[in-house]
Amino acid sequence: MFSFTVRSFFQKLVTLFFISVISFLVIYLAPGEPSQIDPLNPKFTPEDLQRFRQEFNLDKPLHVQYYLYYKNLFTGQLKSWKDNQPVMAKINERFLNSLWLFIVGTLITWCLSFPVGINAAINRGSFSDRTSTLLAYVLISIPSFFFAYILIIFVVQTFHVPVIGMQTFGMTGAGKLYQAMDRIWHLVIPSILGATGGIALLSRYVRAQMLEVIHQDFIRTARAKGLSADRVYYSHGLRNALLPFVTMFGLILPGLIGGSVIIESIFAWPGMGRMAFEAILARDYPIILTINFVAAVLVLIGTFISDLLYMVVDPRIRL
């Protein structure tokens, strides 16, 4: 266990190094420079351009820029090119906003997909099984931006509540209860959208896993003992079908960043995805690179946690 941890840590460190190199090269070697973002602006004189390039080390060789970028990142000195604010502070602030979406979305995913998947597996071939299968495919296939607009039309016309942004403008004077309700209404649609793909995939996995387990010998034995159906399925079956999902706890970490770009842009949600989108529009390289780096770190931590959980949950697995 200890040797696995150490070995895996160093492997991941090497991977992270290559990721940092590749993402740096991809962004810095692309044609066009951030200093050319607004070439027609008459206020942006050649002297300004020179100062800009000097200020952000753009006139130095590539490897020096790489070194300076990661030195600044790790010492917390990294500044956004757009507004000169420290990058980590900006990301931190947005991260907390995204965290809400992520937590609610994950809760919705896990609470919905398990009952649906287990039900589909137990009643295999029934009407509910086929419906949930088709629905899962529809949820995977629906473009999130289209689904977002359907939900907006539905919620706005049925409940008459505003849904764009994190809260309604001018609610600061209202009572605590009103404010809380307002926040919840704003949270619901984006987190449902964030959960759609997850619900579809996870319910399919649960169904497949459960199907595999309930065709095994120990389930037949449990049935033959005369146990009730609930006990057979939930106590004997589900416990064995759960193993892969415990490990999925680690793998959902990267969901904090990936995939939220479109949803956060539509709902004007001040989170990581929206910040990434704005940074791309403004060619704010430090922010783009740092978000990429944070995402990669989250993926690596996630796989590490899931590897560890594999071992803890299932002692048969040796790594």
């Binding site: 990721i19 990936g258 995939g259 791309i280 990669a296």
Partner: peptide, 24 residues
């Protein structure tokens, strides 16, 4: 396979968006 692992660490849609936005 290490290279595959490295590529899998990138957030796919964000990476595509970045590159497409930078390229003409």
């Amino acid at each position: 396979m290490r290279f595959v692992d490295i590529m899998l660490c990138f957030p796919a849609f964000f990476l595509i968006l970045t590159v497409v936005a930078i390229l003409p």
